[in-house]
Design a protein around this nucleic acid. Structure first.
Lengths: 118, 118
DNA sequence: TCAACGATTCAAGGATTATTGAAATATGGA
DNA sequence: TCCATATTTCAATAATCCTTGAATCGTTGA
């Protein structure tokens, strides 16, 4: 993830509706959610959700694929991981004082990485 | 860090000049930088840097303190760590697939946390 | 083919954010 | 006190972003 992408991603996440959408899509996993379901759960109009989904897609944080009449949106896990990484490495310069609390979180939410630490 | 703060922080980081400023302040550490030096290094006008510094302060990512004629700005490490944490926990739901790469980064940039893993 | 469904696009308006230069404020030294 | 320095504030403008509702597009089933 380069700076251009990071700027776009930060902009995408700086809006309440979009942050809400991202959360829902992360939870729904690879199955994703149809635009209509997203609109319903987020309690916004179809055209409004479409606007925000386009914005999120432009930033690379989500992807879409048509399935029959519906358009299914899924979170881009790689991009989200890349953004966290950007924030730690590029933005915060890998500063231990900043990254330490984050590392603690990472340790408990991603046990698979314990092996990577050896 | 609650959602309100996170939204403000993402907004603050979504602007090129402000991202640049945060990077410089993280590097300069507790000593911080005077507004004038920031303006000079970032190559923006005094009034423009003042606008962006106010925005960054409003988001809680930096703090200011007057020192004689200068006003010194410093990065708020706690807030930056909190933002990374928010991104991992609240936004990405602690999803292992997303947090794993970040954990790897954390492991190498913040060796002090290895103890916390035991 | 036609109607219905799921979704996007478009245009208009309002709201927020960014930039600029001039004026104002605060501090310290002559 | 007066001047220079460091910075902010203000007003005006430009640019971007958000919301809304109507119109449009693609897909499916009757």
């Amino acid at each position: 993830m380069d700076q251009r992408q990071a700027l776009a991603a930060f902009g995408a996440l700086s809006q309440e509706t979009r942050l809400h959408i991202i959360r829902m899509l992360v939870v729904s996993g690879p199955d994703g959610m149809a635009a209509g379901s997203i609109a319903e759960k987020a309690e916004v109009s179809p055209s409004n959700v479409s606007f925000h989904l386009k914005e999120l897609e432009r930033s690379g944080l989500i992807a879409q694929q048509r399935e029959s009449r519906s358009i299914i949106y899924t979170a881009n896990y790689e991009a989200l991981g890349g953004l966290i990484r950007f924030l730690m490495e590029d933005c915060c310069g890998g500063n231990a004082e900043i990254c330490a609390p984050a590392a603690a979180v990472a340790a408990c939410c991603a046990p698979a990485t314990k092996e990577e630490l050896q």
